[in-house]
Design a binder for these strands. Structure first.
Length: 573
DNA sequence: TCTGGGGTCCTAGGACCC
DNA sequence: TCTGGGGTCCTAGGACCC
């Protein structure tokens, strides 16, 4: 294992929820829950304000609504998050060729490979500057862990949350790990945790004391060896860039169980097409087709079939999936169906045959999102999804706060505006149209293109030009208006980095405005006066079409299955 | 209002081959 | 002709992660 803490782990704080708060000024400092809004939805991310109520990832949405009835509930906008993620990953790649993304909001970086750091001090400097650059470029905060191994860097970033940096000094690893719960270790989930607990093993120290043979006996060969190594803080896994995909899959959970066998078959065909579309989009083909069925009682089964050669032919995948379905009993109903392809290759033998035979390989078009207006179905509540951006010919840019009863409620605000007003329209209002998200950080007018409005980091942007990294995937380019994102403007502070080595996890005593209140820990504070924009929260019906709410507070709409935003929180901190 | 969607890795049994 | 021992592939399920 290396002797310097030069493996960096970055984890963005409450990423989806923070991105929504940065995009929507009226949500800053408030409980925000991002996830599926249907009857079977779960929480993807809860803002720190929502976590105060006990809301957390993977929790059923119904439970979240009971715990935090006044939170704002939004559907995830992955395209938006991906564009932010690309900006962050570009900053990381400027540090090292060895960047290993784990998800949209998380990655390992080998700083030694990038010759950016060789000891604790240089590593810490890189981490401090990275956090500043991330905030300058995206307006969001991320937590950084630095250590001599991937496992410890990840544990460090977890301890740094939110909005902090923790460096684990080489030599202190075992002392630091010892008292921690076994559940802290990556790979120890509920099942393994219970298993170990029943064997009297609660802490990492007890794991090490149990010995390797005992652990292998308890949890199996691979897991046992891995667990013992982790308990001794041994982790030699290298940071690996470019890990090719091993499978591609799509699945849908239905709001209501499907009983009709015919309908089940049709859904499987649709999923097969969607899966192939994704496969082709990635330039891949695969040999093994997998069908997944979750029954009414939540029991899940998979059936798979391996072809003689890889394919990306929708007809071939459809037929295989249909054959697999034939062998499955669906009486009682199914709640989820999925189709996947594994055994991936980046060429396809069957395609060569198909081309040789002159057989066209066609895929039905996806939903006609880009179809001309006259072909598109008329807008309905479902068309205006909670949280999505819209533009009104008269009122400008805003986002859907809720819809129902033929009306859609829009809050007109932009990332760099004050919290905005709410107006209600008919769902088929001709002046209203869907819009792309706006950049979270505004460019200074007249400034160099790509210069962050929030100002440069104390040490300036990293050499490869993070500040020169234009936001990808956003239309519009430079926009007028000065100042950065509210709360991110002004000098970038590094207060949270003060508690570097040997930091106390989640030390609330760290000075600085971002930890000013426990409830808002890590959340960017709304600008002064924002609080005044939120009124009594009295439940108001949607106004008449086109009518402006008399108060800037959100109007409350009746719940509808199209996903209404509840009245926005007035009770959260 | 009880449980998403996209992945990874491991285990274990049987087939099959040498 | 009473019976081995690997290795690899396929299939099914489960734990875990974000």
């Amino acid at each position: 294992m290396r002797t310097a803490p030069t493996i960096l782990h970055l984890d963005m704080d409450a990423f989806y929820a923070s991105a929504e708060q940065a995009s929507k000024p009226s949500l800053r400092g408030k409980a925000v829950v991002v996830g599926g809004l249907g009857p079977r939805g779960v929480v993807a991310t809860a803002s720190y304000e929502a976590r105060v109520f006990g809301v957390h990832s993977a929790m059923p949405m119904g439970q979240a609504r009971r715990l935090a009835p006044n939170a704002a509930y939004l559907v995830p906008r992955f395209g938006f998050y991906r564009s932010i993620s690309e900006q962050v990953m570009a900053l990381l790649r400027a540090l090292s060729p060895l960047v290993e993304p784990l998800s949209l909001d998380e990655a390992f970086v080998d700083l030694e490979a990038g010759e950016r750091a060789w000891d604790a001090e240089s590593a810490r400097r890189v981490g401090v500057r990275l956090r500043a650059d991330i905030r300058a470029v995206t307006g969001l905060t991320g937590s950084v862990g630095l250590a001599a191994s991937k496992m410890l860097a990840k544990i460090a970033s977890e301890q740094a949350k939110p909005d902090g940096l923790v460096l684990i000094q080489p030599g202190s690893e075992r002392a630091l790990l010892g008292p921690l719960s076994v559940r802290t270790l990556p790979g120890v989930g509920p099942a393994t945790g219970d298993h170990l607990r029943r064997a009297g093993i609660h802490t990492v120290e007890e794991l090490a004391e149990a010995g390797e043979d005992e652990l292998v006996r308890l949890v199996g060969k691979a897991h046992g060896h891995a667990l013992y190594a982790m308990a001794l803080a041994h982790d030699e896994r290298p940071v690996v860039a470019e890990r090719g995909a091993k499978s591609v899959s799509v699945e849908d959970t239905y709001d209501v169980d499907i009983h009709d066998r015919l309908r089940v078959g049709l859904e499987v065909q649709r999923l097969a097409d969607r899966c192939v579309r994704r496969l082709r989009g990635a330039g891949l083909s695969g040999r093994t087709i997998v069908l997944k069925v979750r029954r009414y009682d939540f029991s899940t089964l998979t059936r798979s079939e391996t072809l003689r050669g890889p394919t990306d032919d929708p007809a071939v995948v459809r037929e295989a999936a249909a054959r697999l379905l034939d062998a499955v009993d669906t009486t009682g109903g199914v709640r989820l169906l999925g189709v996947g392809v594994s055994g991936l290759a980046d060429y396809t033998q069957e395609d060569l045959f198909a081309q040789a035979a002159g057989a066209p390989v066609e895929l039905p078009a996806e939903e006609p999102a880009d179809a001309p207006a006259e072909v598109r179905p008329a807008p309905t509540e479902r068309h205006w999804r909670s949280g999505n951006d819209v533009r009104h010919e008269r009122y400008g840019h805003g986002w859907v706060q809720g819809s129902g009863l033929g009306r859609v409620t829009v809050r007109f605000e932009t990332p760099d505006s004050a919290p905005g007003r709410v107006r209600t329209f008919r769902v088929d209002d001709p002046g209203l149209e869907p819009a792309d998200p706006l950049p979270l950080v505004t460019r200074r007018p007249g400034g160099p293109v790509g210069s962050p409005g929030a100002g440069p980091s104390p040490t300036g942007p990293a050499d490869a030009g993070p500040a020169g990294t234009a936001p990808t995937g956003w239309p519009g380019g430079p926009r007028s208006g000065d100042g950065g994102v509210a709360g991110a403007a002004g000098p970038v502070r590094e207060h949270a980095d003060a508690d570097v080595s040997g930091a106390v996890p989640g030390d609330p005593g760290a000075p600085g405005e971002y930890r000013a209140s426990a409830g808002a820990a890590g959340a960017r504070r709304a600008p002064a006066g924002a609080d005044g924009a939120v009124g009594s929260g009295s439940a108001r019906g949607a106004g008449a079409p086109g009518q402006e709410s008399s108060e800037p507070e959100p109007a409350s709409l009746p719940k509808s299955r199209s996903g209404t935003c509840g009245p926005m929180d007035t009770s959260s901190p």
